[in-house]
C-alpha cells in the first residue's frame, strides 16, 4: 500500500458528497423512509469506487443524489466542482441506471445515435463510436432489431453503451452486472478496469461482493442509509495476522515436507489445501472451447474488446485487462494520470 497523500498533494475530487441526507416523503410531506443519512463520500480521479450494501440500503439513492436526479434534504454535492445539475457537469458524465430504461421501439443504432446527438457529436464520429460500441457489447448483429425484443442482459448492454457514447470522465454504474451472463460480467469488469486505466473515474454499486472485490480500488459499505465503513479494498480485507505461500506441488510429498518446514519455523501446523479456479474462470474456459462449433448467434456474441475510441494504446490496455496486478493503485491517482497522459499524443 502506498502512503496516503497529504491534503496539499491530493487532487480535487471528481465528485463529493458532504453530510448528505435524503428522506422520501408521502403525499403530505411526512418522511416515510430515510434512504440516505449523513453520507460523506469523496470520489477521486481515476479510481474505481464500489458501493456495497444489502437491498434497500440506499445505494441507488446515493447515486441518484450524486447525479442530481434527487435533491438532498441536507448536505452538499459537487460533481467536477459544479452542481450536479449543471450542463457542463452532465456533458462529462455517463450513467447506467439500475433498471433498463430503453426506448422499446427503436434499434440500438437509433438509440445510440440519438444519445450521441445530444452530446453534439459529429455524425461521422458518432457512426464510428456506435459501430465500435456495438462490437464491444457484442450486439453488432442485432443493430437493426428493436430493443423491445431484447433480453434483459442485451438491454443492459445497450444501457452500458449508452453510458459510454460521450467518452465520459465519470461513469456511474448502478448494478452494472445485474442480468448479465458470466461472460457479460467478465466483460463488464474488464471494461471497468480498462476505463480506469484510461484515467476515467468509475462509481458502481452492487451487492455481488466478488465483483466489487475484483475491480474496485475503494469500497463503501452502506447499511440503513448510513455509510458503515469505507476505504481501500486491500486495507479493509487484509488479515495482517496470517500469511500464505503458493508454489508448485504436483505430489503430496512436496506439500508434507513444506508443512514440516513451516511448522518448525512458526511452531504451529499450517492449513494445507489446493487452489481451485473460480466457477467463473471454468465457465469462460468452457465457452471458449465451445466457440468453434457455434451456430447463428441468438444473444450476444463472444470475443469483443474495448471500443477503439475508448482506448489510448492497445498494449497498455491488454495488460490492464489480463493482469489484475497491473491495475492502477487508487491511492495514487496522480501516478495513474501521469501514465495515461504520457501515452496520449
Amino acid at each position: 500500500m502506498t502512503e496516503p497523500l497529504s491534503n496539499a498533494d491530493r487532487p480535487s475530487p471528481v465528485a463529493e458528497l458532504r453530510a448528505v441526507s435524503r428522506a422520501f416523503r408521502d403525499f403530505w410531506g411526512r418522511p416515510t423512509v430515510r434512504a440516505v443519512v449523513d453520507v460523506t463520500l469523496e470520489i477521486r480521479p481515476g479510481e474505481i469506487f464500489g458501493l456495497l450494501g444489502p437491498n434497500g440500503s440506499g445505494k441507488s439513492t446515493t447515486l441518484k443524489l450524486l447525479l442530481g436526479l434527487l435533491r438532498p434534504d441536507q448536505g452538499a454535492i459537487r460533481v467536477f466542482g459544479l452542481s450536479p445539475t449543471a450542463r457542463a457537469a452532465r456533458a462529462r458524465l455517463g450513467y447506467l441506471p439500475e433498471d433498463n430504461y430503453v426506448y422499446q421501439h427503436f434499434t440500438p443504432e437509433e438509440v445510440l445515435g440519438f444519445y450521441g446527438r445530444l452530446f453534439n457529436l459529429r455524425s461521422d464520429e458518432l457512426q464510428r463510436r456506435i459501430g465500435q460500441l456495438l462490437d464491444m457489447i457484442g450486439l453488432q448483429h442485432a443493430r437493426n432489431r428493436t430493443l423491445g425484443g431484447f433480453s434483459k442482459g442485451m438491454a443492459r448492454r445497450i444501457g452500458l453503451a449508452q453510458a459510454l457514447i460521450n467518452d465520459p470522465e465519470l461513469v456511474v454504474l448502478d448494478e452494472p452486472t445485474s442480468g448479465l451472463d458470466p461472460v457479460g460480467c467478465r466483460q463488464v469488469k474488464d471494461l471497468i478496469r480498462m476505463l480506469s486505466a484510461r484515467g476515467k473515474t468509475i462509481v458502481l454499486s452492487s451487492h455481488l461482493l466478488a465483483d466489487v472485490e475484483d475491480v474496485c480500488h475503494r469500497v463503501g459499505i452502506m447499511h440503513h442509509g448510513r455509510m458503515a465503513v469505507q476505504g481501500p479494498v486491500h486495507e479493509l480485507l487484509e488479515d495482517r495476522t496470517q500469511g500464505r505461500l503458493t508454489f508448485p506441488a504436483p505430489d503430496a510429498g512436496v506439500l508434507e515436507r513444506a508443512a514440516q518446514a513451516v511448522q518448525q519455523a512458526v511452531g504451529a501446523p499450517p492449513l494445507i489445501d489446493r487452489p481451485c479456479c473460480t466457477l467463473e474462470q471454468f465457465f469462460l474456459k468452457q465457452l471458449e472451447q465451445d466457440a468453434s462449433q457455434a451456430s447463428a448467434p441468438t444473444g450476444v456474441s463472444l470475443a469483443t474488446g474495448l471500443a477503439e475510441y475508448l482506448q489510448p494504446l492497445a498494449g497498455r490496455l491488454e495488460q490492464a485487462a489480463h493482469d489484475p496486478d497491473a491495475r492502477p493503485q487508487a491511492d495514487d491517482p496522480k501516478h495513474l494520470r501521469r501514465m495515461v497522459d504520457a501515452e496520449e499524443p
Binding site: R87, A91, P97, F119
Partner: peptide, 14 residues
Amino acid sequence: ADRNLILLRIKPVA
C-alpha cells in the same frame, strides 16, 4: 413513467 426522461436528464440538454 417509463423513466426514459431520467436518462435525458443526465445528458447535457436543457
